[in-house]
Computed example of a mutant assay.
Amino acid sequence: MKKLIPITLGLALTFSSSAFAAQTINSAAPVKTAAAITASSQTAIKTATSGGFTVKTDMNAIITSQPLLKLLNVTRDELNTQLKAGKTLETIAKAKGVSTDKVISCLMLTQTTQIAANVKAGKLTQAKSTQVVNELKTQIKKAVQQKYVTTTTTTTTTKTTTTSKTAADSKSSAVDNERLNAAAKALGLTEAQLKKQAEAGKSIVQVAKTYDVSEQTIANAVYKQDQQWLSEQLQVKWEKTDGTAKGANEDLQRLVDDGYLSKAASSIGVTQQSLLKQLQEGKSLNEVCEQNNADTAKLASALEAHCKDQIASQIKTAGEHFE
């Protein structure tokens, strides 16, 4: 049976430099159950991030990318069906005679344009821009080669049922709505009004300028909405499982899918797979950090920096509304 401690759901996003360092960690850490996470979802890439630029590569972003649909000459439903059937985007593209490099370039077209503009404006050096582009390409390639559907087997005393589902997308959608609502409130708009302007092609920063609201104000509003979630993930423990796969624990799955586990592993000095295994054995992120003689404050800072990169890119991207 799962023992879930209610927490504020959300993806902590912030520009505040002191946010995590100032968090007080309670001595009595909550306990959660870590159900099985399949191999494909362990390596799921939902975003590619570098230098403040983010390319969303979750399934929803892929099937709603108009440039990609045009490149592959498929409809949204056709692409969605093939991905849910277990095909990788790379496989689908090759069947259409489209190279992986062209797919990657298509997915990061907006970011490439922004990077070039920053170089021209003197905000980014050519060397740094090359580094950012290469890092994004490396991450996007992994996403293009991944499967978006995972299979989990649920065992009961009477029967075994096999189900397929996308990795934590239902929870992600709810969280995205919370973030969008926080940004809308900061602008004095309804969620629907902000979403409509974003879907018309405006970035949230562009909308904010119309209402004389600063980029920092938007970032702070979203952060305030979701601040506690990541702080709790640093100390929460997951109970050992009995080997029965009941679908990945949603919060642990979000750490994997949104790149936090990868950042944490790098900060601690272990592999992502090793870190995930230790969490599933009942340890918290902070405990693993301390046992490896790593700095918990640096761990929190690394995750905070990841948040900053994501929010900075999301609110500047035309048509981006956190979904």
Rank of each mutant, 00 (worst) to 15 (best):
T157L: 08
T190I: 03
Q139E: 15
T296N: 08
T57L: 02
I218W: 09
T160Q: 10
K84E: 09
D309N: 09
I104F: 03
S65F: 11
S40H: 10
L107P: 06
T166W: 05
K165G: 11
A22G: 12
Q114I: 11
D58C: 04
A121V: 04
Q291S: 07
V205L: 06
S40W: 11
L11C: 00
A183Q: 07
K283P: 08
K237T: 15
K87P: 08
A121T: 06
S203N: 11
Y211A: 09
E320R: 07
V132Q: 13
S27M: 02
A183N: 05
S313V: 07
T49A: 14
Q111E: 08
K32A: 14
N73H: 13
T54A: 02
D212S: 15
V288L: 06
T163P: 11
A248R: 11
G51E: 04
K137S: 04
A35Q: 14
K128R: 09
T64N: 06
V207M: 03
Q114K: 15
L230Y: 15
I45N: 08
A35G: 12
K141H: 14
A219Y: 08
G319A: 15
Q42E: 05
K102Q: 02
A186F: 13
K196W: 04
A61P: 07
A117L: 14
V222N: 06
F15I: 14
S231Q: 15
W229I: 06
